[in-house]
Structures are given as structure tokens and as C-alpha cells.
């Protein structure tokens, strides 16, 4: 039997599909166990989107409109790594978020908070050879979401990564350290206890720009490969 190329996630890493406190899961979470696939070319290849051209300002969400958005300007940066700590070079990182008032630029968002015509909320960055990526944005607000009485999402930025293969695809959310809403959020708390802190960015004083913006560091760790080479 050949050894698998990518390591299976350790138990206690990802949320259970069915997390009752998050009320959208019972109607949508698959109930039957997923069938384990051996890693074939279909799983170890994946879109690298290497040809994708990024415009110069795509990673600066404060300069995509006519003027600067309202809110607290922040820097969000980090590295895309695998489980061995090796960088995932040239990774495409996509983010989306609400504005400083807690409102998405999206027709489905009916929250009674102002839209900001200068904030769209989507960005992309290409990591460098060391896996480092950078965004300039504004700190997203908390927003109510009707999951339960007085439910508010903690401030968060959505992140989407492909990694080197179909098997490494990941969509996640970055939270801010010590947000008082975290203990009450069913989506954050769907992640097992020992792993959920990985979704909190670190306040990064060394990377702040004096007189300009505070900084947060969020490293993203994708699945690593087993030691045996594939040849």
C-alpha cells in the first residue's frame, strides 16, 4: 500500500460538520461519514492560479475606492506555512470582510448599520517565496446575525487559501485577540478547544507603523506532506 502524500488532519483540528449551536448546520451538514480517498493525482494536484495577475492595490482595501474608508486602519500580515513550518511560496490569499460599522457590501446583508461607499471589503495578495503576505485594511466591526437571541459575530476577516493541491484547500476566519465576543460565538467555538486559539491573530507591535496603523499577524498552516517522496 502506498503511503499517502498529504497528512490527514489530526483529530481535534477542524469543527464537526454538525455543530448544533450554529443553527445553519443541522440542515446542511452531511451526516454520513466521508469516504476516505487514497491520494491520487486528482487530490495531490490543484489550482495554483500562478498565471493570475493581481493589480497593484488589490491587497490594500483602503485604496480601492474614491477615498479612504472610515474606521481604524490596520495592517494584517503573516505567513502561509505547511505543518513542518515550510513556507508555501507564491500562495494566493483571498480575504473578505465587513466594514468598520459591521456591514457587508452585499445585498443580503440587511443589518441596520451604514454602508461605506469607500469600502468594498474584498482583497487578494500573493505570498512571496517565504510565504509572507500583507494586507492593509480597516478593522471590521461586530455584527448581529440572528443565530440566537442577541447573537453577534466577533470581528473577523474571512480567508481563502488553495495551497499546493486539491487536498490542501482551506477557507477560514481570522479573529482579533481577546475579543470579548469570542466565548459566545458558535462559529469560533465549533473548532475544538485545543485548536481554536489558532484562529486568533496576534497583536504585532513590531510591525505597527507609528502614527499610521496597528498591526496583526496571522500565520496560516496548511496540511503538510508525509516524508516519503512520491517517486
Amino acid at each position: 500500500m502506498e503511503k499517502e502524500i498529504y497528512r490527514r488532519p489530526a483529530a481535534g483540528t477542524h469543527p464537526a460538520n454538525l455543530s448544533e449551536a450554529y443553527k445553519s448546520t443541522p440542515g446542511r451538514a452531511p451526516r454520513r461519514p466521508a469516504v476516505a480517498l487514497p491520494h491520487t493525482l486528482s487530490e495531490i494536484t490543484g489550482p495554483l492560479l500562478a498565471e493570475e495577475r493581481l493589480d497593484a492595490l488589490e491587497n490594500d482595501l483602503t485604496r480601492q475606492r474614491m477615498g479612504p474608508p472610515l474606521g481604524e486602519r490596520i495592517l494584517v500580515h503573516g505567513r502561509v506555512l505547511d505543518e513542518d513550518g515550510k513556507p508555501v511560496p507564491k500562495a494566493l490569499v483571498e480575504i473578505w470582510q465587513c466594514n468598520a460599522a459591521g456591514r457587508y457590501h452585499h445585498p443580503g446583508d440587511q443589518h441596520d448599520a451604514p454602508l461605506d461607499p469607500n469600502f468594498y471589503g474584498g482583497g487578494r495578495a500573493r505570498a512571496d517565496e517565504e510565504g509572507r503576505y500583507h494586507f492593509i485594511t480597516i478593522k471590521p466591526g461586530a455584527y448581529p446575525w440572528k443565530n440566537h437571541y442577541n447573537a453577534w459575530r466577533p470581528a473577523h476577516i474571512h480567508f481563502s487559501l488553495f495551497g499546493p493541491s486539491f487536498a490542501t484547500r482551506l477557507i477560514t476566519q481570522m479573529y482579533f485577540p481577546n475579543d470579548p465576543l469570542l466565548p459566545f460565538d458558535p462559529i469560533y467555538n465549533s473548532v475544538p478547544d485545543g485548536a481554536r486559539h489558532r484562529l486568533q491573530a496576534a497583536f504585532d507591535l513590531d510591525s505597527t507603523r507609528p502614527e499610521w496603523a496597528l498591526a496583526y499577524r496571522f500565520d496560516i498552516v496548511l496540511r503538510g506532506r508525509n516524508a516519503t517522496p512520491m517517486e
Partner: peptide, 12 residues
């Protein structure tokens, strides 16, 4: 020096 795999979250 792994920090452990980043957990998944909904696309929302």
C-alpha cells in the same frame, strides 16, 4: 516548529 494546522471555518 509547527503551530498546528489552521482549522476550517464557514465561508459565511
Amino acid at each position: 516548529m509547527s503551530k498546528g494546522l489552521t482549522p476550517s471555518q464557514t465561508i459565511g
